[in-house]
Amino acid sequence: MLNSLGHPDTLLLVGGTSEIAASIAATMARRRPLHVVLAARPSSRRSAAANVLTGLGASVEVVDFDATDIPRALEDLRSLLARTEIDVAVVAQGRLPRQSDLENDPVLAVETCTINYTAAVAVGLLLARQMREQGHGVIVALSSLAAIRPRRANFVYGSSKAGLDAFYTGLRDQLRGSGVRVLVVRPGFVHSRMTRGLKPAPLAVTPQDVADAVVAAVPTGNGTVWVPRAARPLMLLVRTMPGPVFRRVGL
């Protein structure tokens, strides 16, 4: 249960080795005792993430989750949800290959879309059903500013996030009144492992900035979380910009 001040007792991280997900978990665990379920592929990164959270006093459980094997991943998640009541679930699995690699390798592009979008759809539907039955819950979906308007520099990644964004925005409306809330988080460029070596875009933020915004929105939020907040008016501008202008600005 979320308590009256919006603190969860259990937190599920799908894509548990994501730096943003890890920051969210660490921020919550620093405040209060927390049970964290890390759903990710078995790896040293997953063990390291678990160790960090254990060090913060959280109890940690790991579940195998491979976004490229959806039937299997769903089965493992389903059995987790049957035994552990999840208060907040963060859908954070994602990949950001170089755009040039994606353009040269359609198989890699499909795999990226599977991880970023298709798997998120499967997980979202599963979480929605379970949380609707338990009558409460918060789903946090990590979208991106790249979902707002495709740029030629990263439109493959952007299209996968646009799909995720549309799906969770619709899911939020569908769950309205069920006791389950959905937060669609749209961060700008995030300094992280995933973006290492890339040139930071304007409005760059850190995983901790995203975590702070999410943690602040969990108690009552049921909508879109822009990180930073200034991204919201700016993206309105970007969205309405005529094509020729948009291309010339070369965002």
Partner: peptide, 19 residues
């Protein structure tokens, strides 16, 4: 009750958290 789940009063909700 939600209170029971949140504080694990009955001991049936796996709430054996450490402070």
């Amino acid at each position: 009750s939600d209170l029971d789940r949140r504080l694990d009063l009955s001991g049936r909700h796996g709430g054996d958290r450490q402070c």
